[in-house]
């Protein structure tokens, strides 16, 4: 990727609130990034066309339109990482952004630490060569993607085909939240995207088989109102600092 032969990754920050732009810029520049700013859709279209950034940070509510429209356009010609900034309680916005191709979202108000962690993770993913690891380990569980086998503490674990597909979707997302819709479409097909209760049943099954305490899962986490994500390294603190 571009970023690998550039001295500093370029981040386009699309946000209409000057105060937010200012502190995000300060944080990103302290991290060694080059920051371009845009306060409107029109300006961000120009920026995107002129100097392909390595990452787009996108606020959804802009004075001249909806950030989602920009995201949908962008996804027709670019797979650049997109981090969406959204108001904390607007889960529908987050889901819409993820379904439209956003890589991750950050709920306002967010802290500098959380912001930088997300940006680093997205840039790392974008720069990593496309070949994926064939063996994934979390907790006591090891998943061999080539052999399609799952073991827990060395013992083979039996997953049903759908359970395996769901686990595969979570692994492929690399720690990001996968929306309910994406999981339902991936595991059962596009006709089942409204059957959220299927996920309740199957996620409970996966947790029983893979989590050491299924009631307090450390790896297969629920993002209420949004979807699920797989965390490889168990956090012993809050699920996502700052996101309720």
């Amino acid at each position: 990727m571009k970023a690998s032969h550039r001295p500093a990754p370029v981040i386009l920050l699309v946000e209409d609130e000057a105060g937010i732009r200012r502190f995000v810029r300060a944080a990103l520049e302290a991290e060694g990034c080059t920051v371009r700013e845009a306060g409107s859709l029109e300006r961000s279209r120009m920026e995107l066309a002129n100097r392909r950034p390595d990452l787009l940070m996108l606020d959804l509510g802009l004075p001249d339109g909806d950030g989602l429209a920009l995201l949908t356009e962008l996804r027709q010609w670019s797979g650049m990482p997109v981090l969406v900034l959204s108001a904390r309680s607007d889960e529908a916005d987050k889901v819409g952004a993820l379904d439209a191709g956003a890589d991750d979202y950050l709920a306002k108000p967010f802290g500098v630490g959380e912001l930088l962690a997300r940006v680093r993770a997205l840039l790392r993913r974008a720069m990593r060569p496309p070949q994926a690891a064939s063996r994934i380990v979390f907790g006591e569980v090891a998943v061999d993607l080539d052999q399609r086998t799952v073991t827990r503490a060395g013992q083979p674990v039996h997953l049903t085909p759908i359970e395996y597909r769901l686990l595969g979707l979570l692994i492929a997302a690399g720690g990001r939240t996968v929306t309910q819709r994406q999981l339902l479409a991936g595991a059962w097909g596009p006709n089942h995207v409204e059957h959220a209760h299927y996920l309740r049943v199957y996620m409970a099954g996966l947790r029983r088989k893979l989590e050491s305490d299924p009631r307090l899962p450390a790896h297969i986490l629920t993002e209420p109102g949004v979807g699920y994500r797989l965390v490889l390294e168990a956090l012993n603190d809050a699920r996502r600092p700052g996101s309720e």
Binding site: E17, I20, R22, E29, K108, P109, V112
Partner: peptide
């Protein structure tokens, strides 16, 4: 929105 900015600006002060 301004409160988000305020919290962030205070945190970015040392940066």
């Amino acid at each position: 929105t301004p409160l988000t900015a305020l919290a962030g600006l205070a945190e970015a002060l040392p940066l």
